[in-house]
Design a protein around this nucleic acid. Structure first.
Length: 502
DNA sequence: ATAGGGTTAG
């Protein structure tokens, strides 16, 4: 029964029975523990997971292939990757599933390079990967934006025949999407037989994140024609796609359509709608939607609105919205910076100072921005103004060389994005060495002419860099593809695919 | 008798 409930995702019931079992004279055995642990994993219930870990030691089940794999999985799914690794290291015998549990734990917790390293280690231990273990490396390649490595795995999948597996195919489509190769994603999607709703959703998401809202809509309508039932993820994908392309009326239509399919409108769907309305300039409509939505608000849904307040220079609403945000999430550095930028754009320097002081007083957690690029099977990472790369000399002189032609073509640095107490000239310098520009210069120096430069960035690209990269793409006659935390920007001949709508 | 798995806002 513990197993049956765990298998049916009824984790609370599963654990209730486990707990009842402890009250009897029976003791759980090595067949019960994996499923009790699976239920903890499903609930991300670390506390109960640790209790069960103690039980299984007490009952002498701590050296068992199945129990240990379940422990690794439980710790990983509860975010305790290091503990999972300790359990894994203690195992005396490891099979494909134990390796895969660990690799998947790495992949799903953002330990992307570890995922790839561990996959190699597994193969060196003469454990042959199967379709399940492939999913994790594809996820890691996608997260890292490692297109060449991802292509290598795609080829590997073709050789091994795993491509006919719909889960693997979907993962490859997603990998290509996240590596900026929309064409490859689309090509594989068309080739894939027996597509289910997940695969369709992945492709809709793909068009969305690359800014092809119309194609996402066509695909959604095709999915419906083929009798596939869209689910909560499919709707998230289509709403997000509409939002990235500014398709306001279409987005509203799909939001309403959710009711017909009896798909519950969750926070993530409202977030897309707020974003869509706000970026289209319907600020008060967006505000009203947040106020009257029947799901619990979070700081980020107000954050979308604050972002739109910056675009439209609406200071009054920005102040009101920022109040709400700081009540919900007082230590978020990004929203403080956003608010101070809104003040800066209106030259309200004393307010800028006030927000900065507020920020310092609350010890906000600032995420350091960085950008990276794949080159020769490696990832090269840059942060603003750093000189850690051996080719720094060349990188900085290339950026300096580009400055004059950029200005000749009409580039004007916009320094609103830098805090105002730096001198103007210093601001321009700080901007011109943002991590994405260093990564792009590295790509231009090292990659053969004609190949697109693909950059990944952990934050949103700043407005000035977005503008600068347009000019760079024109001058160097290169396609530059930037993935920021939000979406893709394809720069070519001075134009960005996002149409500056982002 | 037992395990590992694809899509999702900001």
């Amino acid at each position: 029964m513990i197993r049956a409930y765990a298998t049916e995702n009824q984790f609370h019931r599963s654990l209730n029975l486990y707990s009842k079992m402890l009250d009897t004279e029976l003791t759980p055995d090595k067949y019960a523990f994996p499923f009790a642990l699976k239920s903890c994993a499903g609930l991300s219930d670390l506390w109960t997971g640790k209790q069960i870990h103690l039980h299984l030691i007490r009952y002498g089940c701590s050296v068992d292939l199945f129990v240990d794999a379940a422990l690794v999985d439980m710790y990983a799914k509860c975010g305790e990757v290091e503990t999972a690794r300790l359990v894994f290291d203690k195992m005396t015998v490891r099979d494909l599933v134990s390796w895969t549990s660990m690799i998947s734990g790495y992949a799903h917790n953002g330990y992307n390079s570890e995922t790839l390293e561990f996959f190699d280690l597994m193969q060196n231990s003469d454990v042959k990967p199967n379709r399940v273990s492939i999913l994790s490396v594809l996820l890691a390649c996608g997260n890292l934006g490692m297109l060449r490595k991802g292509e290598w795995f795609h080829n590997y999948v073709i050789q091994t025949g795993f491509q006919s597996d719909i889960l693997v195919a979907t993962s490859i489509i997603d990998m290509y999407t996240k590596c900026g190769s929309l064409d490859s994603a689309h090509y594989l999607f068309d080739q894939t037989m027996g597509k289910d709703v997940v695969c369709w959703s992945a492709m809709i998401a793909s068009y969305g994140i690359h800014g092809h809202g119309r194609k996402a809509i066509d695909l959604f309508d095709r999915l419906v024609d083929e009798g596939v039932r869209p689910n909560h993820v499919t709707f998230t994908c289509i709403l997000s796609a509409c939002s990235h392309s500014g398709l306001l009326e279409e987005g509203k239509k799909y939001f309403d359509l959710m009711k017909e399919y009896e798909v519950v409108q969750e926070l993530k769907h409202y977030a897309c709608m707020v974003d869509l309305l706000a970026r289209a300039g319907k600020l008060s409509e967006a505000e009203k939607l947040i106020e009257r939505m029947p799901v619990k608000q979070d700081s980020s849904i107000w954050g979308s609105l604050l972002g739109a307040c910056r675009i439209y220079g609406n200071l009054d609403l920005a102040e009101k919205v920022a109040d709400r945000i700081f009540q919900l999430d007082p230590t978020h550095a990004g929203y403080h910076v956003l608010l101070s930028n809104i003040y800066a754009a209106k030259s309200r320097w004393s307010e800028v100072e006030r927000v900065r002081a507020l920020m310092a007083g609350k010890s906000t957690k600032k995420i350091l921005g960085y950008s990276w690029i794949e080159f020769k099977n490696q990832v090269y990472k840059f942060s603003v103004g750093d000189r850690l790369n051996p080719q720094s000399e060349k990188i900085y002189s290339l950026l300096e060389e580009l400055a004059a032609p950029m200005i000749n073509l009409g580039y004007v640095p916009v320094t609103d994005f830098v805090l105002h107490d730096i001198e103007d000239e210093a601001k321009e310098v700080a901007l011109s060495y943002h991590s994405e520009r260093l990564a792009i210069a590295f790509g231009l120096i090292n990659m053969s002419p004609g190949t697109p430069i693909r950059i990944t960035k952990n934050l949103r690209i700043c407005g000035d860099c977005h503008n600068a990269i347009k000019f760079i793409s024109k001058i160097v006659k290169r396609v530059i593809i930037v993935r920021d935390m939000h979406r893709f920007h394809h720069f070519e001949d001075g134009v960005c695919s996002c149409g500056d709508y982002w």
